[in-house]
């Protein structure tokens, strides 16, 4: 394995990720886990794992800063990563990561477990505008999680079940709480699970499309975040925008990759 030259850690609200990259900015090592509310403990664990793969890795231990690869922290918990050389917001990091992976600008939609964002990226890879939804669960993974629970469908099967039908009922609420009550009433009226699920996906995507509109759609449209594992999401996003949706190879690691790339610049 090539040497890890820089590290990026993305402490999100749903998952935590750490990425190690080589001289060329390629991901050569990573760990992804569900977020632990005890951020400090999880970060320490990640760094322990990193030390195992790269002997040259060294982060400040007990106040001593040794020579080693730099670490950039991003995501909501970034300020809690005391070992980080610097912190950078997830907007900049995601743009950087996806630009590196796909090699072009455009509009990046990142749907995370509890927040979502839309980033306008210039042909040179710079952030030109962004919109964030982090005050409300509408338009985030949590929206589906909540309602899927009600329908008794396991999260991993959400996409498959959704795409198994052509029928769809319209869900008028974008609000997570109201959508849940809407679902309960639909079930009570005997409506089948699949069309309800499809309607829920569309409702989530409509919220995301509204965010895209505030930033302005600059094609191509790119998608990242944990929700990408659900195949119904890119498909419905494509339907709603009329744009082909491009997904990078490691959709959940874009923030951590961007952070590592910024760290690599420090080495250079």
């Amino acid at each position: 394995m090539a040497e890890v030259r820089a590290l990026g850690i993305d402490v999100g609200s749903t998952t935590a990720k750490i990425v190690g990259i080589d001289d060329d900015g390629r991901i050569i090592w990573h760990v992804l886990e569900q977020a632990d509310p005890q951020v400090g403990k999880q970060v320490e664990k990640f760094l322990e794992l990193a030390r195992e793969v790269t002997p040259i890795l060294s982060v400040p231990i007990e106040g001593e800063r040794e020579i080693g690869v730099p670490l950039i922290a991003t995501g909501y918990g970034r300020k809690l990563v005391h070992q980080a050389t610097r912190t950078v917001t997830e907007i900049t990091c995601h743009a950087r990561g996806v630009f590196r992976e796909l090699g072009h600008g455009g509009t990046l939609v990142d749907i995370g477990g509890q927040d979502s964002k839309v980033i306008g990226i210039s042909p040179k890879g710079e952030v030109v505008d962004f919109s964030m939804n982090d005050k409300c669960a509408a338009g985030t993974g949590r929206f589906l999680e909540n309602t899927a629970n009600r329908l008794g469908v396991h999260l991993d099967r959400l996409g498959e079940v959704t795409l198994s039908t052509v029928e769809e009922v319209s869900i008028s609420s974008t609000c997570t709480v109201f959508a849940e009550s809407e679902v309960i009433s639909l079930i009570a009226h005997g409506v089948a699970t699949e069309p309800i699920l499809k309607g829920l996906h569309r409702s989530l995507i409509k919220r995301v499309v509204a965010m895209i509109r505030t930033v302005g759609l600059r094609p191509p449209l790119m998608l990242s975040g944990g929700v990408v594992r659900n195949p119904a999401i890119p498909q419905i996003l494509q339907e709603e925008t009329g744009e082909e949706v491009i997904i990078p190879r490691h959709p959940q690691l874009m923030g951590a990759l961007g952070a590592a790339l910024i760290a690599l610049e420090l080495v250079e």
Partner: peptide, 14 residues
């Protein structure tokens, strides 16, 4: 607080 700080930080980076 948290959201404002995050947006401001991202804006400054931009």
């Amino acid at each position: 607080e948290q959201q404002v700080a995050n947006r401001l930080a991202a804006f400054v980076e931009m």
